[in-house]
């Protein structure tokens, strides 16, 4: 019996945000995601663990990134904010049912 082995490398980019994801920061985030997808990375983790403020423009940037990643066969997943005000935005918009979210990037890495 011949045992054939092969290895597969999955590339995952992680983007760590600072304390705000608002309209100003959303522009940069969109550019980062667009560049990653254009470079062939369609699995992206956005780390919001230290982010204190997220607005609808920030959500829109995440939603657009998720669509782009999913179109390429991947996904954009989110590390939840530890700050209740930032976390609440996902609940208010039901985006916490849309994104795959976890408490840490390691938890998300294990999902791929």
């Amino acid at each position: 019996m011949t045992l054939e082995t092969s290895s597969h490398e999955i590339r995952i980019d992680t983007i760590v945000l600072g304390d705000r994801l608002d309209a100003l920061r959303a522009v940069e985030l969109r550019e980062q995601i667009t560049a990653a997808v254009a470079g062939g990375t369609v699995r992206i983790i956005v780390d919001l663990s230290t982010t204190q403020f997220v607005d609808s423009a920030g959500l829109a940037a995440l939603a657009k990134g998720m669509k782009d990643c999913r179109s390429g066969g991947g996904d954009l997943r989110v590390v939840s904010s530890q700050h209740p005000d930032a976390a609440r935005v996902f609940a208010l918009t039901r985006f916490d049912q849309v994104f795959v979210m976890a408490e840490s990037a390691d938890d998300l890495l294990r999902t791929w």
Partner: peptide, 14 residues
């Protein structure tokens, strides 16, 4: 005050 979470889609759902 509004709660900070609804029915979250956890990572294990993926």
């Amino acid at each position: 005050s509004i709660p900070a979470a609804s029915g979250r889609k956890e990572a294990h759902d993926a």
